[in-house]
Amino acid sequence: MRAIWKGAVTFGLVNVPVKLYSATEGHDVPLHQVHDADGGRIRYRRVCELDGEEVPYEHIDKAYEDGDAKVVITRDDLATLPAERDREIGVVEFVPSDQIDPIMLDKTYYLEPDSKSTKAYVLLRRTLEETERTAIVKFALRQRTRLAALRVRDDVLVLQTLLWADEIREPSFGSLDEPATVTKKELAMSAQLVTSFEADFDPGDYTDEYQVQLRALIDAKIEQGDVIDAEATFGEAAREAGEGGKVIDLMEALRRSVDQAKERRTG
């Protein structure tokens, strides 16, 4: 892994030098766009609308327009901002971990000690573990001030950026205002269904089936010289997965689900 940022976690007078690494990576099969008539690659170019010339990335600045005026912001302008120059991950407060709503979680990063001595790093890690708290921090990354949760995962400090409060939409669904009656029998049957599916979560048990099927399709097209009937290969499985009439009786649907879950467990 390659560090994408270096700085220090600070709380009080304690300074913990760290390196920041992306904790996740995508696994999607890489695809690009082509012309359906001849297979030619479709590319996007940065073209100036005034002179029609393609512009190299190093000559592209940013601008803000409000309808009346346009202000150009250069890289040098951005570099002068105090937050952009700041290399600290400052602890704002320590909060109970259960107070962080999962809807706020964004990207995840690992923090590695960036010092010959790991004592300060271990001190912070042990403090979070023993107090059962999560540190709320603020730092600057890629021209944005970030709010983040700092916690421990398998002896490593993990930084999870948080969405700002005004980035969370309020749900407003008129359909939920309509009263719906759920009977005790339906609730009991639903609880029984939940019980039949109970398990300890292991993310390794799950596979991205779409990507697996996409890779199989690509391999088949290569093997068959780019000639394959995709509908015949994958269509039948898709139709079987989508079969089933419209269920009107909720209790009957629950009973069937419980029976299927039992068969799955004993089969």
Rank of each mutant, 00 (worst) to 15 (best):
L150R: 06
T10G: 11
R46A: 04
E112D: 11
G12S: 01
V258C: 01
Q213S: 02
L20M: 10
K70G: 14
E209T: 04
D259Q: 12
Q99K: 11
A79L: 07
T24L: 13
G235Q: 00
A63N: 09
G267K: 01
D66A: 00
G267F: 02
R151N: 12
L157C: 03
D98V: 10
A23S: 06
R2H: 15
V247H: 09
F234V: 00
Q213C: 00
V29A: 01
Q192D: 14
W164L: 12
M251H: 10
E223C: 04
L123S: 02
T181A: 15
M104W: 15
A3D: 01
D114G: 07
Q160D: 15
K107M: 11
Y109A: 04
A83Y: 11
P30T: 02
L111M: 09
L214C: 00
E209P: 04
L217C: 01
L123D: 04
Q192R: 12
R169H: 15
G7S: 02
E178W: 00
A69G: 13
L150H: 08
T80L: 14
Q99C: 14
D66H: 06
Q213R: 03
D106Y: 06
A135V: 06
I4L: 02
V18Y: 08
T161E: 07
G267T: 03
L20C: 10
D61R: 09
V122C: 08
I248E: 14
T207I: 09
T134G: 03
H32E: 09
G244I: 02
F201C: 03
W5L: 10
V92R: 11
K138D: 14
V194S: 10
K62V: 12
T134W: 05
K19M: 11
L176C: 00
R169Q: 14
G90C: 14
D155L: 15
A63G: 13
E223S: 04
V14Q: 14
S97K: 15
D249W: 00
